[in-house]
């Protein structure tokens, strides 16, 4: 359960970014989360609610966009969705591919701020 650490990091990065952009009020943090990030969405959502209470933005929402697990398929010659986290074959043709090209994301994509 490292989601609380992740939530605290997330708030720290958001706070830094807010001051860099000289924004005053944070409404929501938008993040992108991949299935291979090692973070469980539900656990992060719960941890975030606890972490934000004592933070600079006790009312800011967390908006999570889940990305897909993508592999570089040697047969299709393109980026394709993988069968699953524990089966890294191309969903389209079934070829094994070890090259993950998407799905590790754990990043803040945008900060939603109050427009004054």
């Amino acid at each position: 359960m490292h989601e609380l650490s992740i939530a605290l990091n997330l708030l720290e990065v958001a706070q830094q970014t807010m001051s860099e952009h000289a924004e005053s009020e944070l409404v929501a943090i938008h993040i992108r989360l991949g299935p291979m990030s090692g973070v469980v969405r539900e656990a992060l959502e719960s941890a975030y609610l606890i972490a934000r209470e004592e933070s600079f933005c006790p009312n800011a929402a967390l908006v999570i966009e889940e990305t897909e697990l993508m592999v570089d398929c040697p047969k299709c010659g393109d980026h394709q969705v993988a069968v699953s986290l524990n089966d890294l074959r191309c969903r389209k043709c079934g070829t094994v591919s070890g090259r993950i090209v998407g799905g590790r994301e754990m990043e803040i994509s945008a900060l939603e701020v109050k427009d004054e």
């Binding site: 992740i6 990091n9 997330l10 720290e12 990065v13 970014t17 952009h21 924004e23 409404v27 929501a28 938008h30 993040i31 754990m106 990043e107 803040i108 994509s109 945008a110 900060l111 939603e112 701020v113 109050k114 427009d115």
Partner: peptide
């Protein structure tokens, strides 16, 4: 509200 695009790793530090 408006969106400020950032694209920063959460575990940047």
């Amino acid at each position: 509200t408006r969106l400020v695009e950032v694209r920063t790793q959460i575990l940047k530090q």
